[in-house]
Design a protein around this nucleic acid. Structure first.
Length: 723
RNA sequence: GGGCGAAUAGCUCAGCUGGUUCAGAGCGCCUGCCUUACACGCAGGAAGUCGGGGGUUCGAAUCCCUCUUCGCCCACCA
């Protein structure tokens, strides 16, 4: 907004406002929606002249983090979009061609869960409907409710380019997903493997490492004695999961551990199963933990699985997909829930006199990020993306400064993740999502596996019938492409040429790895450049006890409630003024009045200042700058006039810098103080005698106040666009 | 276990490169005011050993060390 200046040439003669009357009461409800409609009708948010086409106009592109298609607006969205809108409006006012691209995410697990709950009310499961009917049901739900969240974003004033709105399951974006899969496969970066993955026994699907959220939990460490098969004595192992001992196929010790030197190669008899399992030596064992001897359950622990591979151990899967005990365990345990089995196994071991002791033990346990169920490590066939080759350029982008983070420290988290990257499990045992584009030939003797951009009905090898992989892709496998798939990729569209790479990504730190980091990797891989150059990570909305606002805690605030009561401007001002760079926003769900007082009071103040000013602009108003006989000459300005003009210019500079540095709360408070303390409390009071006609200079005061107030409103526009 | 932040008025937080906008803002609180824009307001006011301790410096909320307390991210010690 560097082109704003009090003495700069006025865009429109203030005289045009002469005689305007505002209603005495500030009623945002009556102003905001009609104004928003006018903006839309005028097409003000539609990016028209892409970069390259009109090279004289620099661009500014922001990709909205697409909300889940079933989502309803919460304060997190409110904060996220208030920030984006402030940035996009600021750059738009600075004269850039802006694109703020909105969309929705099909949100595989989340949406499938929602619809499953819906049909559960009819007493049905997805299996009752069958795959095709269930997917159709989800589509129906999406068609019906999918635009709710976007309409809600409009209510808070978001100036998105709605003409380019996308959905991650649109035809075009689905094509992008296929193209991406095929290309990565061709480069050897996608593979199918038999590994231990994180499994949610409630959602019945694999999860990525990021989707299994570690939570520190108070647990227990049980010490079990496994008797030696030959001779007397026993080996004591320590475990946090007694139930898995039913799937043990070995005991492992460190090769240099003198305590067990003579035992390696011998066997123990596994209690409860009477299975004889070997004692093996493996470097992965930490002699310092527990007894230094570890029970090995290859099917249910990643480390144990690796040990099993090194020693060719038997692998026994003891769980069903629901994490109940399977037929591979003694009959009395079969069908038992894993936590019930934990108690039973421990109790039986104890009754056999084989429980040496137990200890309290705090450790991290994975939980499903969608339903919070304790994740079960499970051995299965899944598709993976080899991540190290993708991470290298993404890390380089950060190291070279091409990509930066606000606040800066988040960059180190990003780098740390990139440096320790692990392969990405992308297959999900769900029905809602992009189906994996792989077809298997059933013909005897062929068995060919084909990865294809187009649907197949016949095997390209033998012409036999094929069946498509049953699984769908991780939701984030479409999200990570959004910065270019939403612009038309893989086609070379004008939008893609014009708007890639974008500029700023505004999001919550929770999805730094899920989404942000992967977008950078995909951008580098498929477009040869980062998708954005600045990542602004804002804080979280919390209640007065600093708990994250959530539906389950019932401590949320409905932003639309706030809009209804105090207006979108008040909501937005409160959010932005209350939020430091990268810090959390604390609001009291039980006291909206107090929580939103800053915004509400300020909006009301502005309204009344405007009323006062407009009601006094009844005479012909003179321009402050420019040419002509009417222009206010410098000598005509009084001390107060010169002071408020100086303050206004200083505020313009301060606010412009604050916006440009993403210090939105600084911008908000600078405008607040200018309007309230300088303009309202001092200047407006000072000019009253002049305006009321009993002193000279009323026309000069009118000229000054009209211009100064106009500038203040312009400065405020990114934050409070309606007023 | 590794990495990183934060601690300033009752509450939420500014304070960016050590020094006259350095002890600030909003809310809350106290005292007056329905002064013809606004009581969602106006004029005033009280309120902080800047988490504790040590250091560097002419000078520290700000830099260093240390302790305490909260928080975040990462992690295959079962």
């Amino acid at each position: 907004m560097s082109n704003l200046s009090v003495r700069g040439a006025p865009k429109s003669p203030p005289a045009s406002r002469t005689g305007t009357e505002l209603p005495p009461q500030y009623r945002p409800q009556e102003i905001e929606a009609p104004l928003y409609r006018r903006w839309l009708e005028a097409g003000l948010f539609t990016a028209r002249r892409p970069r390259g086409v009109a090279a004289d106009k620099p661009g500014y592109v922001v990709m909205m983090p697409p909300p889940n298609v079933t989502a309803v607006l919460h304060m997190g969205h409110g904060l996220n979009n208030a920030v984006q809108d402030a940035l996009i409006r600021f750059e738009r006012m600075r004269g850039k061609e802006t694109l703020w691209l909105p969309g929705t995410d099909h949100a595989g697990i989340a949406t499938q869960n929602v619809v499953e709950r819906l049909i559960a009310k009819e007493g049905k499961t997805r299996f009752d409907l069958g795959r095709a009917a269930f997917v159709e049901r989800v589509w129906a739900h999406v068609r019906e409710t999918g635009s709710v969240i976007l309409d809600q974003l409009k209510a808070i004033g978001s100036s998105c380019d709605w003409s380019r709105t996308y959905f991650t399951m649109d035809e075009g974006l689905s094509r992008a997903v296929r193209e991406c899969f095929v290309q990565l496969h061709e480069k050897g970066l996608i593979y199918r493997g038999h590994y231990i993955i994180n499994w949610c026994p409630r959602c019945l699907t694999a999860l990525s490492n990021e989707e299994a959220e570690k939570e520190e939990t108070d647990g227990r460490l049980w010490y079990f004695r496994y008797p030696l098969v030959e001779g007397s004595g026993a080996v004591t192992v320590a475990t946090t999961r007694p139930e898995t001992m039913l799937g043990d196929t070995a005991v492992a010790v460190h090769p240099d551990d003198d305590r067990y030197k003579g035992l390696v190669g011998r066997k123990v008899r596994l209690p409860l199963t009477e299975r004889e399992v070997p004692i093996v030596a493996d470097d992965a064992i930490d002699p310092a933990f527990g007894t230094g001897a570890v029970k090995v359950t290859p099917a249910h622990d990643p480390l144990d699985f690796e040990i099993a591979q090194r020693h060719q151990l038997q692998v026994i899967d003891i769980f069903t997909p629901e994490a109940k005990l399977a037929e591979t365990v003694p009959l009395r345990f079969q069908g038992m829930d894993r936590f019930e089995a934990r108690k039973r196994v421990a109790a039986e071991i104890e009754s056999l006199g084989l429980l040496e002791k137990t200890e309290n033990h705090r450790h991290a346990v994975g939980h499903c990020y969608r339903c919070d169920t304790v994740v079960e490590p499970r051995l299965s066939d899944q598709w993976f993306v080899k991540m190290a080759p993708l991470a290298r350029p993404a890390l380089a982008a950060y190291r070279t400064g091409r990509l930066r983070f606000i606040p800066e420290r988040r960059g180190e988290e990003y780098a740390n993740w990139m440096e320790n990257i692990r392969d990405w499990c992308i297959s999900r045992q769900l029905w809602w999502g992009h189906r994996i584009p792989v077809w298997y030939c059933d013909a005897p003797g062929c068995g060919k596996q084909t990865v294809s951009r187009t649907d197949l009905t016949r095997c390209p090898g033998c012409g036999g019938t094929v069946r498509q992989d049953e699984d769908v892709l991780d939701t984030w496998f479409s999200s990570w492409l959004v910065p270019f798939s939403s612009l038309g990729w893989p086609d070379r569209t004008a939008d893609l040429a014009a708007f890639y790479p974008g500029d700023t990504l505004v999001t919550a730190p929770e999805i730094l790895f899920f989404w942000v980091a992967r977008m950078v990797m995909a951008g580098q891989q498929f477009m040869g450049d980062v998708p954005f150059t600045t990542v602004y990570l804002h804080g979280t909305v919390r209640d007065t006890q600093h708990r994250k606002m959530s539906k389950s805690l019932g401590n949320g605030i409905d932003p639309l409630d706030v809009v209804e009561r105090y207006g979108a401007d008040a909501l937005r001002y409160t959010i932005i003024a209350g939020m430091g760079v990268g810090t959390d926003l604390i609001l009291d769900p039980d006291d909206l009045e107090t929580s939103f007082a800053p915004g509400r009071n300020f909006a009301n103040k502005l309204w009344n200042a405007a009323r006062f000013i407009l009601s006094n602009l009844d005479g012909p108003t003179r321009p402050l700058a420019g040419r002509g006989p009417n222009v206010v000459r410098r000598q005509e300005l009084g001390l107060a006039d010169r002071w408020i003009i100086a303050r206004c210019d200083a505020t313009v500079a301060e606010v412009t810098e604050a916006y440009a540095k993403f210090r939105l709360s600084d911008a908000a408070s600078a405008i607040y103080h200018f309007v309230w303390s300088d303009l309202a409390d001092w200047y407006l009071e000072q000019i009253k005698p002049r305006l009321y006609g009993d002193q000279a200079g009323g026309d000069v005061a009118r000229a000054v106040v009209a211009r100064v107030f106009e500038v203040a409103l312009q400065l405020l526009h990114p934050i409070m666009p309606f007023i």
